[in-house]
Structures are given as structure tokens and as C-alpha cells.
């Protein structure tokens, strides 16, 4: 297996995540797109761990998984609060600071 096939798969997932973050309006879907991007990073880390025959990349991937779990917990709490205050999970309605 070449390393590039893993890196290009992960680049594709990352760019799909970019599209989702920019084009989605629903807060939960934006968080899902962020998860896609974090997964792309994990695939990169594990691929480079295998490329270098070193375990460090796998440990970093485990840390990224932990931080992703924390991020989803806090992120969903924020989306829940937005829903409670604005009666809608749409991020386009969060524009009180707009001039």
C-alpha cells in the first residue's frame, strides 16, 4: 500500500467537512462536519504511524478521539442553548451582533 492513498482519502474527507461547515445551517450538522474533519486528521496520524513504524501517531490519534468527544459534548450543549433561546437550531439566526 502507498501512503498517498491514505493521505488523499483523508484530504477528501477533510474537504467534505469544510463544505459541510460552510454550507450547513443546522448546528448539529455543522458539528457532524467538524467530526468528519477530525476523522481525516486521525487517518493521517495512523497512516504516518504505520509509515514510520512508530507508535506515537497512534497515541496522538487516541488523544484526538478524546478531544473530539469533549468537543461534541460542549458543542451540543451550546446548540441546545441556542435552540432554547431562539426556538430554532439554525445558526443563521444567531446574528444579534450584526450591525
Amino acid at each position: 500500500m502507498q501512503i498517498n492513498q491514505f493521505l488523499i482519502l483523508s484530504a477528501f474527507l477533510f474537504c467534505t467537512g469544510i463544505y459541510g461547515v460552510l454550507a450547513r445551517r443546522n448546528g448539529v450538522l455543522v458539528l457532524m462536519s467538524v467530526e468528519l474533519m477530525l476523522n481525516a486528521v486521525n487517518i493521517n496520524l495512523v497512516a504516518f504511524a504505520a509509515f514510520n513504524h512508530s507508535v506515537s501517531g497512534q497515541v496522538f490519534a487516541l488523544f484526538v478521539i478524546t478531544i473530539a468527544a469533549a468537543e461534541v459534548g460542549v458543542g451540543l450543549a451550546i446548540v441546545l442553548l441556542i435552540y432554547r433561546n431562539l426556538r430554532s437550531p439554525d445558526l443563521d439566526h444567531v446574528d444579534q451582533l450584526k450591525g
Binding site: M1, Q2, I3, N4, F6, L7, I8, A11, F14, C15, A47, A50, F51, H53
Partner: peptide, 16 residues
């Protein structure tokens, strides 16, 4: 990204 990756790593293999 694809241009950079192809340029940087070419067809280097992972030895499983």
C-alpha cells in the same frame, strides 16, 4: 492538498 501530497510523497509505500 492532492497536488502537494503527490509532489511530496509520490509512490512511497507503507511496509505492512
Amino acid at each position: 492538498l492532492v497536488f502537494l501530497l503527490v509532489d511530496a510523497f509520490g509512490d512511497r509505500a507503507i511496509k505492512v
